[in-house]
Write a protein that binds this DNA or RNA. Structure first.
Length: 282
DNA sequence: AGCCAGGACAAGT
DNA sequence: ACTTGTCATGGC
């Protein structure tokens, strides 16, 4: 990996198993717009663009080298050895033709390391909802948070700001029945009843139990939060698409545990593959 | 127009 | 322990 800086842009080349398009279009983040081969959006309190220049080469702006090293490298999981992870997965699932197919389709997917609280709230909002509307609700929440806190709307609202918005305020944003869930999450994180630091340092199982103390957080939302917000790769979110994949590819005789320590990544490959195929049927 | 959306909860078997 | 109706809203 070679990192250079010029005119406020950082160029990174020599990347393997990374595609801007796939990473930002596989349903793990909701504040980016993918257009062609670049993704522009908000993360870590900044507005940022990731642009695919070539195979294995991207541009990041506005950005400096030190900012890349301290923020975006980790955010994009470019500090992880995906070659090693993938071969470990392939070895564990030696006979799994479907997974190896999916690993080719989605070879550029990386699990982002998004901020935990934002991920938690985002996936609470995601339940029984569609992606375009999830994006709108999150953006509305950030705008409202900015009004109250005086902070930039690039920042995701903190727990206490969400508490100030209140259940009625959240309903006014059209979050519907999720309003009390969002509020409960903010309250329990703010008063320490749910300890995100403990989730970070503990196992995925402990983390799931901790997150499920929140009303409106069940196995699926917890798993997505653990995977996309805490980098817990063994977490295996099961939604309608994955259920479909499991049944169609494996005949229901399989669980997340069969995919080992990197089950979450395997899940993303399968999820992306199944949806990618659906898209191309139309 | 009507079904469905990266679910979870509560009440009922 | 499994199944079912319900939740608020709008995308397609």
């Amino acid at each position: 990996m070679t990192v250079t800086e010029k005119d406020g842009k950082v160029n990174v080349k020599g990347l393997e198993y990374f595609s801007v398009n796939q990473t930002f279009d596989c349903g793990q983040c909701f504040r980016f717009e993918v257009d062609g081969s670049s993704a522009k959006g908000l993360a870590m309190g900044k507005e940022i663009t990731f642009s695919q220049i070539n195979d294995g080469e991207i541009e990041i702006y506005p950005c400096t080298c030190s900012e890349f090293e301290s923020v975006w490298k980790r955010y994009l999981s470019l500090d992880e050895d995906y070659g090693k992870i993938r071969s470990g997965l392939a070895e564990l699932r030696r006979e799994d033709k479907k997974l190896s197919e999916a690993m080719i389709t989605g070879s550029g997917i990386r699990i982002l390391r998004q901020s935990p609280f934002e991920t938690l709230i985002s996936f609470i909002i995601s339940q029984n909802n569609n992606i375009p509307r999830i994006k709108k609700l999150i953006s509305a929440l950030c705008e409202e948070g900015a009004k109250i806190s005086g902070q930039s709307e690039k920042e995701f609202p903190t727990p206490d700001v969400i508490m100030k918005i209140g259940v009625d305020g959240l309903k006014a944003l059209k979050t519907g029945f999720r309003a009390e869930y969002i509020y409960d999450a903010a309250k329990k994180v703010a008063d320490g009843e749910v300890d995100l630091e403990k989730v970070k340092s503990g196992t995925a199982e402990k983390g799931e139990a901790e997150l499920c103390k929140i009303k409106g957080v069940g196995p699926k939302v917890a798993a997505c939060t653990l995977l996309f917000g805490f980098g817990k790769y063994s977490s295996f979110p099961i939604d309608v698409w994955v259920k479909r994949v499991m049944r169609e590819y494996y005949g229901d005789s399989i669980s997340g545990k069969d995919f080992g320590e990197y089950a979450g990544l395997a899940q993303q490959y399968l999820f992306y593959h199944r949806r990618y195929i659906e898209e191309n049927r139309k």
